[in-house]
Amino acid sequence: MPKHNRSRLVDRELSQFASARYEGDVAGAWRALERAHILGQTVILLHFVVHMRMLSFALQTRDFRETGGQLFRLALIPIGHALRRLPSGNTGRSDVSAFAIMPVPKDVAVELAQD
């Protein structure tokens, strides 16, 4: 069974995350996770997987503010999907409101339009 395009896009960003994390590039790792979030947030399983990676990375980097933010966002996932309240472009990080609509990076917008 062919893998859904959205899943492939998220996998690509998660691969970028793993590479950046391995290289010790914390900012690059978060950037890849944010992009994965934007790409996957409308698919509940992908949304959950990305937030779990964010939670794990927050714990690994001992960022307890981010850890709390990720726990909150994980609890919101089912509610957001049930109510269809998923703010486009939101990076999924704790430094922005979980409800804020944000600009989608141009290259990501192109990929989303092709999906």
Rank of each mutant, 00 (worst) to 15 (best):
E111I: 01
V104H: 11
L33I: 05
R73M: 08
A113Q: 11
I38G: 08
K3V: 15
G68L: 14
L71F: 10
A20M: 07
H4L: 05
R6Q: 05
G89A: 05
L46D: 05
M1V: 09
H37D: 02
A36M: 02
Q70H: 10
H81W: 11
E13R: 06
S97Y: 03
V26K: 12
H81T: 01
L71M: 07
F64M: 15
V96I: 14
T67N: 13
L33W: 02
S15P: 03
H4V: 01
P105H: 00
F48L: 12
S97H: 09
T67P: 01
T42A: 05
Q16S: 14
D115M: 08
R12H: 10
A98H: 10
V96C: 04
G24E: 08
N90R: 02
A20R: 13
A113E: 11
A75Q: 07
L14V: 09
V108T: 09
F99K: 13
S56Q: 07
M52Y: 14
D115T: 08
K3W: 12
R35H: 13
R21S: 11
L14W: 03
R85C: 04
V96Q: 09
W30G: 03
N5C: 04
A27H: 08
A82N: 13
V10E: 03
Q114D: 13
Q70M: 01
L46C: 03
H47Q: 00
M54A: 09
R84N: 14
L14I: 06
E34H: 01
S7V: 01
M102R: 07
P87A: 04
S88Q: 12
A36I: 14
Q16Y: 15
F57Y: 10
L71R: 12
D107K: 14
V26P: 03
R8V: 12
E34R: 11
R53C: 10
H51K: 06
K3P: 04
S97T: 01
P2Q: 15
G24K: 11
P2W: 12
P105V: 10
R62P: 03
A98F: 05
R8F: 10
Q70V: 04
L74M: 09
R84T: 11
A113K: 10
A36R: 03
S7Y: 06
R35D: 13
V43T: 09
R93H: 05
T91K: 08
G69T: 06
D115N: 11
A29H: 12
L83R: 13
V26S: 03
L55A: 02
K106N: 13
E13A: 06
R73F: 05
V50H: 00
G80Q: 15
A36Q: 00
H37S: 07
G40W: 00
R21P: 07
R31V: 09
G92L: 07
A75H: 04
G80F: 00
Q60T: 15
E23M: 13
F17A: 04
R93W: 02
V96T: 08
Q41M: 14
A18Y: 01
G89Y: 01
H47S: 05
M52G: 00
